[in-house]
Design a binder for these strands. Structure first.
Length: 574
DNA sequence: GCCGTTTTCGGCCCGACTGTTTTCAGTCG
């Protein structure tokens, strides 16, 4: 099993134990172990071989035993027993905003709620009134959280599907009878919320595909069907409790055409069909047209007298129009990125020292970074007081002197307080090289108040960047109420940069809004918000968002040279 | 369950906010 899979098991154990009413400290050890494993940059299998598992803080004898068991047998009996006893779907209760372990435990134990459907029935049927201490306001709040989850319908955030998606593509690529395997559909377009997981393989035998897939744990309910999307054979299955998996089978002549057709959203394909029709080419409706066979994706677009359209722009029809008009942008690429302007260290809630982050960022090839630990109001995150910030700044500056080949900017991720003022005084802020301002508390404001709050922050001459501007957590929490158009306008007026936060939990701004901001003349920045060394590698998730937002590299400030970046920061602060 | 000792048992992230209370419990960040 991979680190990811093992971490997930521990997280689930922690949740289940808490719902059972087990000592919360014992339960939280499992959750913490999961978190530790998530941020590990070495393979657990390797550590186990070297007998070093217990050298990791938070991993003792018992957890080591379970890790070894999972590495050797692929399962954890302790966890399997919990699941058998309580059901896996109980874990979904904790996904509801406003429901923590205590409330989940009460609904579970006192009302027999086992899954989200049960929860809905208890709310709608009024049976929650049987619970002492849970009144109508609490239920209203929970109901809102539950409706958010129901609105996701069967969709899953990318971060949730990624581990199994990677396991599946690896198995398919390793199968000797399979020539090629690639993600297609939403996954290839880098959508952050998915309806299904789709892959294309070059292989004409569905049995071979089923054989390979059955080696991946958690892939179930195999069926071979004729797909109206690919116009050919397809292996359908499910992963992650009923999330649809589709593997389209193509022969070598049809592979690229199949990739093109399965990657395109319906609107894009319709627009492409429209263009094909004007050139007397057969439309691709439910089957692969002959004129596409044997062609590469580029040559298919070429045959329709269009330039190549990158997968990220195949969400809609407007990219076809732009392609026809010759106005497609040259999209930003990962290699354009020269720095990372938002990250944390052990000074606040990060895991590594300033020096470790600097060395790791240098190894990533960055020319510059900004160290931006939390400010005092973020207490859980061990936010810095003004006094600690000054010491922090000194350390950043001295490390910057010592380490060559990378420039380290002294920054802060400063809390935006409820009234829109900042968490440090102006004279403190003035000493920083860069200020990222973010909302971390006070989410329940009216749209008018929140917009006013944001705009006041943007008006501060010390603020360079607004971090994760909408505050959404993918699949977990909607963003706060905000008039983003007004915020974009204010950012444009004051030369404040909006962030595309590359953390897979956030991906905030989202593409449509980032595109809107860009069109309004606002500059953007793509930052990892890394809290540990491995997360510095996640810039590409932000690049995907930027590409879907039609951004060129000129729209993103951390593609700039250090000199140009510093000019921009100084111009703002002056 | 893990850690770190004044070494074998006590403490474990902290404060704001909200709702249901009438002094506190639960959630969130």
């Amino acid at each position: 099993m991979t680190n990811d899979e093992i971490g997930t098991v521990f997280l689930n154990i922690g949740h289940l134990l808490q719902i059972q009413g087990e000592d919360s400290f014992r339960a939280r050890i499992y959750e913490r172990a999961a978190d530790t494993i998530d941020n590990l940059d070495v393979d657990l299998g390797q550590l186990a071989e070297e007998g070093r598992l217990q050298s990791i803080p938070g991993i003792g004898k018992a957890i080591e035993g379970k890790i070894v068991e999972m590495l050797e047998t692929g399962q954890c009996r302790f966890y399997e027993n919990l699941i058998t006893e309580m059901g896996e779907e109980v874990l979904d209760l904790l996904r509801i905003r406003g429901v923590g372990v205590k409330t989940a435990a009460r609904f579970y134990n006192e009302l027999g709620v086992r899954n989200l459907q049960d929860f809905r029935a208890v709310i709608d049927g009024g049976r929650f009134k049987l619970l002492k201490g849970i009144g109508s306001k609490t239920i209203d709040r929970i109901d809102e959280g539950l409706r958010f989850l129901e609105a996701l319908d069967r969709m899953r955030p990318l971060w949730r599907i990624l581990p199994i998606a990677r396991a599946i593509i690896q198995i398919l690529r390793d199968a000797p009878e399979i020539e090629r395997a690639d993600f297609t559909g939403e996954m290839r377009r880098h959508e952050e919320m998915l309806h299904r997981l789709e892959l294309a393989v070059e292989c004409t035998s569905p049995a071979t595909i089923v054989d390979a897939l059955s080696k991946v744990g958690g892939v179930k309910e195999f069926e071979t069907i004729e797909s109206t999307i690919s116009g050919g054979q397809c292996v359908a299955a499910s992963v992650d409790n009923g999330f649809p998996l589709r593997v389209y089978a193509f022969d070598s002549e049809a592979y690229e055409a199949g990739m093109l057709i399965t990657t395109a959203a319906a609107e894009h394909l319709a627009a492409l069909n429209g263009v094909a029709e004007t050139r007397s080419l057969e439309k691709s409706e439910g089957r692969l047209p002959d004129w596409m066979r044997g062609k590469t994706e580029s040559s298919i677009y070429d045959a329709a007298a269009l330039p190549f359209i990158p997968p990220e722009l195949r969400r809609s029809g407007d990219s076809i129009e732009a392609a026809a008009a010759g106005t497609l942008p040259t999209l930003i690429e990962l290699s354009d990125i020269r720095g990372d302007l938002h990250m944390h260290t052990e000074w606040s809630d990060g895991r590594h020292s300033i020096r470790e982050m600097v060395e790791a960022a240098k190894a990533c090839g960055h020319d510059y970074i900004a160290i931006t630990d939390h400010s005092v109001s973020s207490r859980v995150a061990n936010g810095l007081t003004a006094e600690r910030l000054l010491a922090h700044m000194n350390e950043v500056r001295s490390i910057n002197e010592e380490v060559s080949g990378i420039e380290v900017l002294a920054g802060s991720e400063v809390d935006i307080l409820n009234d829109g003022s900042l968490d440090f005084t102006d004279d403190v802020l003035a000493q920083l090289d860069i200020v990222v301002a973010s909302v971390h508390a006070g989410f329940n404001m009216s749209e008018a108040d929140m917009t006013k709050r944001m705009i006041r922050t943007i008006e501060s001459p010390h603020v360079n960047i607004i971090g994760h501007p909408t505050g959404r957590l993918l699949g977990r929490r909607p963003g706060y109420a905000l008039n983003l158009d007004a915020v974009i306008q204010a950012a444009a007026e004051h030369g404040v940069v909006l962030e595309i936060n590359a953390s897979t939990n956030r991906l905030d701004l989202e593409p449509d809004m980032a595109r809107k901001a860009n069109e309004a003349g606002v500059l953007l920045t793509i930052n990892t918000d890394a809290h540990a060394v491995p997360q510095l590698q996640q810039t590409h998730f932000g690049i995907n968002v930027a590409r879907r937002a039609w951004l060129t590299k000129d729209a993103v400030i951390n593609t700039y040279s250090l000199e140009k970046l510093c000019d921009l920061l100084q111009a703002r602060n002056a």
